[in-house]
Every structure is written in structure tokens, then in C-alpha cells.
Nucleic acid binder design. Structure first.
Length: 144
DNA sequence: CTTCTTACA
DNA sequence: TGTAAGAA
């Protein structure tokens, strides 16, 4: 983890074992827009240590804070991505995100805007809201 | 043998 | 959340 926590090295079965959840649940979190695992050319999912931390945060939020997947997704849908990546007004006009309030930006189409060639998994927006500890800090920097 | 997608008595 | 089918 100290070398490169972004290295996708865990298969879905290994990740599930480490997290003590089922592979089915991991796929569901993905389908619900809570995380974006790395994909090999063979379409197989791979998870990094950072991904594991992200899922731990999700588990904690669901089990301890009693917020369901839908609730988490709606919070993520409020991230001011345009401010983080500094969209132009043209980008905003072409972005589907501005007509949606229940999906995180990384679940939407990015055609015709500055995000179209980006991999959301590598995006600062997705990364910054990856675990419970960093979210509040990130929001502080946006409000200053 | 593992993983992928899709579906559901 | 679990399990199953058929494909890769």
C-alpha cells in the first residue's frame, strides 16, 4: 500500500474475501455507481488498495450510519465536479450532469465536454471522494 | 477453475 | 443478497 495504492492487483474474489463481502455485492456497488474498478483487456475487474478503502467507507456508511446505497449515490451526486476540474461555461452547457440530481458525474455521458476523453477512475473528482476521511477536507478547500 | 452478464421459483 | 445459466 505504501508503494502504489492505486495498483489494481486484486481479483474480485480476492477483494471480496479481504472485505468480507460477496462478489455479488461488489458488482452491485459498481452497478449503483459507488465505485469504478479497473478493467483488464479481458474485461475482468481488478481492485486496488484504494478501491478497498473506498468500499470499507461504503460498508461503514451503510452499516453504522444507516444510509443506503441510494442515499450514498445521492450525496455523491452533489459533488461540485465543475469547480474541481474547472469546467468552461461551454463544458457546463454540454454536460448532462446539470440536468441530473441523483447520479454522480462519473455515471453520466461525457460526450462533447472536457470529460469525454478522461477516465473517471483517474479523475480528481472521483478520487477525492474515495474514502470517509478525505471528503470533508476536500470540501473545505472548495469553500475557501 | 474463475469471472462476466443477465435474470429470478 | 443469493443463486443459476451460458459464454469466455
Amino acid at each position: 500500500m505504501t508503494i502504489d495504492s492505486n495498483n489494481p492487483i486484486y481479483t474480485i474474489s480476492n477483494a471480496a474475501k479481504l472485505l468480507d463481502i460477496s462478489v455479488h455485492t461488489l458488482r452491485m456497488y459498481e452497478r449503483e455507481g459507488l465505485l469504478i474498478p479497473f478493467r483488464k483487456n479481458s474485461n475482468q475487474r481488478l481492485y486496488s488498495d484504494k478501491d478497498l478503502e473506498r468500499v470499507k467507507c461504503i460498508k461503514k456508511t451503510i452499516n453504522e450510519d444507516k444510509i443506503n446505497i441510494e442515499g450514498i449515490r445521492r450525496v455523491l451526486a452533489l459533488i461540485p465536479c465543475w469547480s474541481i476540474i474547472k469546467c468552461s461555461s461551454e463544458d457546463k452547457k454540454n454536460c448532462e450532469f446539470f440536468s441530473s440530481y441523483n447520479k454522480p458525474c462519473w455515471m453520466l455521458n461525457h460526450k462533447n465536454n472536457t470529460c469525454q476523453d478522461k477516465d473517471c477512475r483517474d479523475c480528481e473528482v472521483y478520487q477525492s471522494f474515495g474514502n470517509c476521511a478525505s471528503i470533508k477536507e476536500k470540501l473545505k478547500t472548495l469553500l475557501i
